[in-house]
Computed example of a mutant assay.
Amino acid sequence: MADQKHIVIVGAGFGGVTLAKELAKENVRVTLVDRHNYHLFQPLLYQVSTAVLSASEIAYPTRQFFKNNKNVNFYMSKALDIDQERRVLITKHGEISYDYLVLAAGATTNFFGNESVARNSYAMKTLQEAIALRGHLIHEFERAARKCGPDQWEARQRHLNFVIVGGGATGIEMAGALMELIDIFKKEFHTIDFKEVHVTLLEAMGSVLPMVPPDLQQHTID
């Protein structure tokens, strides 16, 4: 309808999808923009990266949320810029005019200014990053399995030491899931001495899970 306001939302994460669902009940037009055509359940990325879940189990087609909402349109493209004077969102595939614009594009991995960590580590914010990390973990064990000679200990160590940076909820969950994956691999990689496998969790604060009470921190450590 001509008198409907047009609201453009950038980002089909939790915030963007929730807002679009609420606005779908109103007399407005909504365009939801995202570079991917799926909604990602980010809290379970660590389970994809450790082969517990498949990618399809945490990625849901965004259009499915709004199949009964004719006033909500999904537009798959990457947002590039905003022309505030013209009230236009510029995307990789064209321009979208708006009455109101909501930016809900999410966040990127925070390396806290540590360029070495950023350069030499695997992030875990996107589905592609989780899949890449899963492939890396599995291939490190495959590489170690080929270096089974007694004189290849140092070479094996390059593949069997895993460091997780960040002792928050995701880091703790990742460490636990990685240990479970290692338990599975113990039955499959017969040439690896799993006493040589080490998982190290690094946290800059005084304890893991610094956002929870001390008794829960200690329970996690125990």
Rank of each mutant, 00 (worst) to 15 (best):
H93F: 14
H93M: 13
G94D: 04
E95F: 01
E95L: 03
I96A: 05
I96Q: 04
S97H: 10
S97F: 08
D99Y: 05
Y100N: 15
V102E: 02
L103F: 10
A104C: 05
G106Y: 01
G106V: 02
A107Y: 10
T108D: 14
T108M: 14
T108R: 15
T109S: 12
N110F: 03
F111K: 13
F111Q: 08
G113T: 02
N114F: 07
S116W: 13
S116F: 14
S116L: 14
V117I: 15
V117R: 10
A118V: 00
R119C: 04
N120D: 13
N120S: 11
N120E: 13
M124L: 14
M124D: 08
K125S: 05
T126V: 01
L127H: 02
L127D: 00
Q128H: 12
E129K: 02
E129H: 06
E129Y: 04
A130M: 03
A130G: 00
A132N: 10
A132T: 10
L133T: 02
L133P: 00
L133S: 01
G135H: 07
H136P: 03
L137A: 02
I138Y: 12
I138L: 14
E140I: 00
E140N: 11
F141S: 09
F141I: 10
R143L: 12
R143E: 09
A144V: 02
A144T: 02
C148H: 15
G149V: 00
Q152M: 10
W153M: 15
W153L: 15
A155V: 11
R156F: 00
Q157K: 12
R158T: 09
R158S: 12
R158Q: 14
L160F: 06
L160C: 05
N161H: 14
N161Y: 08
F162K: 01
V163L: 10
V163M: 10
V163S: 10
G166I: 06
G167E: 07
G167A: 08
G168M: 05
T170D: 08
I172P: 11
M174T: 09
M174N: 11
A175R: 05
A175E: 14
A177L: 06
A177M: 08
M179D: 15
M179A: 15
M179K: 14
E180V: 07
L181K: 11
L181H: 06
D183G: 11
